[in-house]
Simulated scan of single mutants.
Amino acid sequence: MQIFGSSLGDYGEFHDLLGFVQRTGLRPVIDSEYPLDQVHAALDRLASGAQFGKVALRIGAQAAG
């Protein structure tokens, strides 16, 4: 398994970003969520190019909501 992410910015910028999100309540647009065992369906959604926002994977038994 591989996890891909972004490493743009430094720790100070990340700290400032977290403060901004906390102050404003900014939330990302979530297009869809999939349980981890449906990772291939999530990747298919990304490959389709039809998503608007983030495609998220849920890790663990906790349901979204």
Results as ranks from 00 to 15, higher is better:
V39S: 12
S6W: 03
I3D: 00
V21F: 00
I30M: 09
I30G: 07
A61R: 14
G9F: 04
L43F: 11
I30D: 04
R27N: 13
T24L: 05
I3H: 01
V21L: 10
P35L: 13
G60L: 07
V55A: 01
D44M: 05
D10Y: 02
T24M: 02
R45S: 03
M1E: 08
F14I: 13
I59G: 08
Y34F: 15
S7G: 10
Y34E: 07
A61H: 13
G49L: 10
D37W: 12
P35I: 09
L46N: 00
P28E: 09
A56Q: 08
I30R: 03
S32H: 02
Q51A: 12
G49K: 03
V55P: 00
G5R: 07
G12N: 14
V39T: 15
S32E: 11
G5A: 11
A64Q: 02
Q2C: 13
D10E: 10
Y11C: 13
Q62E: 07
Q22W: 03
A50H: 08
Q38N: 14
A64V: 10
H40E: 10
G49R: 04
G49H: 03
I30W: 10
D44S: 03
L43D: 02
R23W: 05
D31N: 11
D44N: 06
D37H: 15
Y34A: 04
F14K: 05
T24Q: 01
G5L: 10
F20S: 12
A56N: 02
A56W: 01
R45M: 09
S6T: 14
S32C: 11
F20W: 08
S7L: 06
Y34K: 07
L17V: 06
F14T: 12
R45T: 12
L36T: 11
G65D: 09
F52C: 02
E13G: 07
L43Q: 07
H15A: 03
D31M: 01
D31S: 13
F52H: 06
A50Y: 05
L17S: 07
I30C: 14
A41P: 01
A63T: 12
A63V: 14
D37F: 14
L26E: 11
D16Y: 01
F20N: 06
Q2T: 13
H40P: 02
L18A: 10
A63C: 12
H40C: 14
G19C: 09
V29Y: 01
T24H: 01
T24N: 05
S7D: 08
D31P: 04
L17N: 04
P28A: 15
D31L: 04
F52W: 09
H40L: 14
V39Y: 09
